[in-house]
């Protein structure tokens, strides 16, 4: 079954605040062998942690019609308006920015605006999700 055809443009509620701690940064960097010391800014892909929570919100919303096990991450882009640091409290607000069907698959373009506790835009994380459950 294809996803809700009116999905394009829909905005989802913000995720709950995510606390960026030194431990979380060290663990994230360490998993890919990326050099990181206390005080350093976060690795460039770190905001995926918050964006991923927002994508979970989209994928788990029963009105959307996505089957989680049929979703592939097709494309990812980050625009950093400022580096992420320890002490940041981040929330992501996801909006669907495009929906098309190719060969029976739903191509869902999303953009998650990641804000700090003061409401300042820190990072924009754009993800394209490919949902293949509509395929014959």
């Amino acid at each position: 079954m294809a996803v809700d055809p009116t999905l394009d443009g829909r905005q989802f509620p913000p995720t709950s605040a995510y606390s960026v701690t030194a431990q979380r940064l060290a663990d994230f960097a360490g998993a890919t062998g990326t050099a990181w010391q206390p005080g350093d800014p976060a690795p460039a892909t770190f905001p995926i942690v918050v964006a991923f929570a927002a994508m979970q919100g989209l994928m788990r919303d029963p009105s959307v019609g996505i089957e989680l096990r049929h979703v592939i991450h097709g494309q990812q882009r980050f625009v950093h308006h400022r580096p992420v640091h320890e002490g940041d409290e981040l929330t992501a607000t996801l909006q669907v920015t495009g929906l098309r069907q190719i060969g029976g698959a739903d191509i869902i373009a999303t953009s998650s605006a990641i804000h700090d506790a003061a409401g300042v835009l820190v990072c924009t994380a754009e993800a394209t999700l490919v949902h293949t459950a509509g395929a014959a």
Binding site: T34, A35, P41, F78
Partner: peptide
Amino acid sequence: MALAARFVDEYVGRPGQIEQLSAKF
């Protein structure tokens, strides 16, 4: 993608210098 960011960090010599990063999987 995180490995790609690591590569760029190592080339630049310090973290936090990437303004944009994009790729298809």
